[in-house]
Amino acid sequence: MGYALHETLEVHEMAAFKTVCLTKSKTMQALVSDPALKQILQRDVELTTRQLQELGGIMNKAMQ
């Protein structure tokens, strides 16, 4: 089952946004000193990485 062009573009937009979020969390993780905040940022990095992998799978399907 293929995806319509607008659906593919929306997934691409979400992936771009999540990439920016991942970059920000990784950067902030290096700058903060509070251990609790570092842990929150690390969880966000892990979650966002999984989400990007899932979006990548959707994009691969859309390109077939």
Results as ranks from 00 to 15, higher is better:
residue 56 G to H: 00
residue 63 M to C: 02
residue 46 E to G: 06
residue 18 K to T: 05
residue 45 V to T: 07
residue 56 G to I: 00
residue 22 L to V: 05
residue 30 A to V: 06
residue 6 H to L: 14
residue 12 H to M: 13
residue 7 E to M: 05
residue 45 V to M: 04
residue 44 D to R: 08
residue 13 E to L: 10
residue 19 T to Q: 14
residue 16 A to F: 11
residue 27 T to A: 15
residue 53 Q to G: 10
residue 5 L to N: 09
residue 25 S to G: 04
residue 54 E to V: 02
residue 57 G to D: 12
residue 32 V to P: 01
residue 13 E to R: 12
residue 52 L to P: 00
residue 18 K to Y: 11
residue 50 R to T: 07
residue 44 D to L: 08
residue 56 G to V: 02
residue 63 M to H: 05
residue 40 I to A: 06
residue 7 E to F: 03
residue 49 T to C: 01
residue 5 L to Y: 05
residue 29 Q to L: 13
residue 18 K to W: 09
residue 27 T to Q: 13
residue 42 Q to S: 12
residue 14 M to A: 08
residue 5 L to F: 08
residue 24 K to A: 07
residue 52 L to R: 02
residue 12 H to P: 01
residue 19 T to K: 14
residue 1 M to V: 14
residue 10 E to A: 15
residue 44 D to F: 02
residue 21 C to I: 15
residue 28 M to W: 06
residue 27 T to M: 11
residue 14 M to Y: 10
residue 35 P to T: 05
residue 51 Q to Y: 11
residue 49 T to F: 02
residue 52 L to F: 07
residue 60 N to S: 11
residue 51 Q to S: 13
residue 22 L to A: 07
residue 51 Q to R: 03
residue 63 M to D: 03
residue 42 Q to V: 02
residue 53 Q to T: 10
residue 60 N to G: 03
residue 40 I to T: 07
residue 33 S to R: 15
residue 5 L to C: 08
residue 23 T to S: 15
residue 3 Y to H: 13
residue 62 A to N: 00
residue 56 G to C: 01
residue 62 A to L: 04
residue 7 E to N: 01
residue 22 L to G: 05
residue 18 K to N: 03
residue 36 A to W: 08
residue 48 T to Q: 03
residue 44 D to E: 08
residue 64 Q to G: 09
residue 12 H to A: 12
residue 47 L to V: 06
residue 42 Q to C: 01
residue 4 A to W: 06
residue 63 M to N: 09
residue 4 A to F: 13
residue 37 L to E: 11
residue 64 Q to N: 11
residue 25 S to D: 10
residue 9 L to M: 10
residue 43 R to I: 00
residue 21 C to D: 13
residue 58 I to F: 03
residue 64 Q to A: 13
residue 6 H to G: 01
residue 25 S to E: 04
residue 23 T to F: 15
residue 19 T to A: 15
residue 28 M to P: 03
residue 31 L to E: 14
residue 28 M to I: 11
residue 33 S to L: 14
residue 64 Q to C: 07
residue 23 T to I: 15
residue 10 E to V: 09
residue 35 P to D: 06
residue 26 K to I: 00
residue 58 I to A: 05
residue 62 A to H: 01
residue 18 K to P: 01
residue 33 S to M: 15
residue 29 Q to W: 11
residue 1 M to E: 11
residue 1 M to G: 14
residue 34 D to Q: 08
residue 6 H to Y: 13
residue 47 L to M: 10
residue 34 D to A: 12
residue 5 L to V: 06
residue 23 T to D: 14
residue 20 V to H: 13
residue 49 T to P: 00
residue 35 P to N: 06
residue 9 L to F: 12
residue 31 L to D: 05
residue 9 L to Y: 11
residue 50 R to Y: 10
residue 5 L to R: 05
residue 44 D to T: 06
residue 51 Q to C: 05
residue 48 T to Y: 00
residue 61 K to W: 03
residue 8 T to L: 08
residue 35 P to E: 09
residue 36 A to M: 12
residue 45 V to A: 02
residue 39 Q to E: 15
residue 59 M to P: 02
residue 61 K to T: 00
residue 48 T to K: 08
residue 57 G to S: 09
residue 8 T to Y: 08
residue 21 C to F: 12
residue 26 K to F: 01
residue 58 I to C: 04
residue 59 M to Q: 02
residue 54 E to I: 01
residue 43 R to L: 02
residue 13 E to Y: 02
residue 46 E to N: 09
residue 2 G to C: 10
residue 15 A to T: 04
residue 23 T to N: 14
residue 40 I to D: 10
residue 13 E to D: 12
residue 57 G to W: 07
residue 14 M to S: 09
